[in-house]
């Protein structure tokens, strides 16, 4: 007899399934499944890193070459495919090499303890229009990463901070994310201090600046080093707009990040 409505749920197989389902969830939260999850993560890391880099390059090329598609199509027909593939591989290696050299240069001039990390994935937040706000790196608690640490790119510009960490990976919120708040200083005459906060996944804002503070476009904004474990002096961005209404107590500044946050493949976590 055909089961109608919800009666199809009540079978021995289904009950066994839901029992196993509950065991999985309890196993995760009790920590019993941690070793297994760690093993899966260790095995998956190299593949995730490789796939993320491939996808990232694809996305960058898609944006740049959309307009030139017709011209490129004609040019590609004449090119040798093997040389094109070799060239792409070499370029990737060169990019990685350049980034690592830039990191070495930066850290030779600045005495920061750091942990290098590869970006494995980015989290897409669909409930708002703000995508590309969080990234996941392949270092976690076991590597010395903890919540609140600042993350920089190869040029020493702060790109975000650690918001969650597991044993072998961590989640970084980018500076343009609403959940990324940094103690900041504007390098103006008064060295105005405040808190920068991401806005719409595109820029950063500093609100509640007293009207008496004089802020100019292109003023550099850096981390102030107050109250957190992020050192002072890491560049956040430049002031691109000052919103100053005479009938309001506060003014606010829009800060444009100095780097393209869509171009992160290797980052460094700055240790206290």
């Amino acid at each position: 007899m055909k089961k109608k409505g919800f009666n199809f749920l009540i079978t021995r197989w289904n009950l066994g399934f839901f029992l196993f389902f509950a065991i999985l969830i309890i196993g995760h939260y009790s920590g019993i499944l941690n070793p297994l999850e760690r093993v899966f993560f260790e095995i998956g890391n190299p593949f995730n890193k490789w796939l993320y880099q491939k996808s990232h390059r694809l996305a960058s090329d898609y944006q740049e070459n959309k307009r030139d598609f017709v011209a490129d199509l004609a040019a590609c027909q004449e090119k040798n495919i093997i040389f094109a593939v070799d060239s792409a591989k070499t370029k990737e290696l060169q990019d990685e090499n350049n980034k690592l050299r830039a990191f070495i240069d930066f850290f030779s001039n600045h005495e920061y303890r750091k942990i290098y990390a590869d970006v494995l994935a980015q989290e897409v937040l669909s409930e708002t229009n703000e995508s590309r706000q969080n990234i996941i790196i392949d270092k976690g608690f076991k590597d010395g990463v903890s919540v609140g640490l600042g993350v920089i790119n190869e040029k020493g510009v702060i790109v975000g901070k650690v918001v969650e960490a597991k044993d072998r990976n961590a989640k970084i919120c980018l500076v343009t994310s609403r959940s990324c708040k940094l103690a900041a200083t504007i390098q103006n005459q008064n060295k105005t201090m405040g808190v920068s906060e991401g806005s719409l996944g595109l820029t950063t804002k500093m609100n509640f600046i007293p009207q008496t503070e004089k802020i100019s476009i292109n003023d550099l904004v850096i981390t102030s080093g107050l109250g957190e474990i992020i050192p002072r002096g890491l560049a956040i961005g430049r002031v691109s707009e000052v919103i100053n209404k005479s009938n309001e107590i506060w003014q606010s500044a829009t800060i444009e990040p100095l780097v393209d946050l869509n171009n992160l493949t290797i980052v460094a976590v700055v240790l206290p």
Binding site: G44, N48, S55
Partner: peptide, 13 residues
């Protein structure tokens, strides 16, 4: 699983 975790979220929106 690998594609869904690492590859797809990095593609254009």
């Amino acid at each position: 699983v690998f594609l869904q975790f690492s590859f797809i979220p990095s593609l254009p929106q």
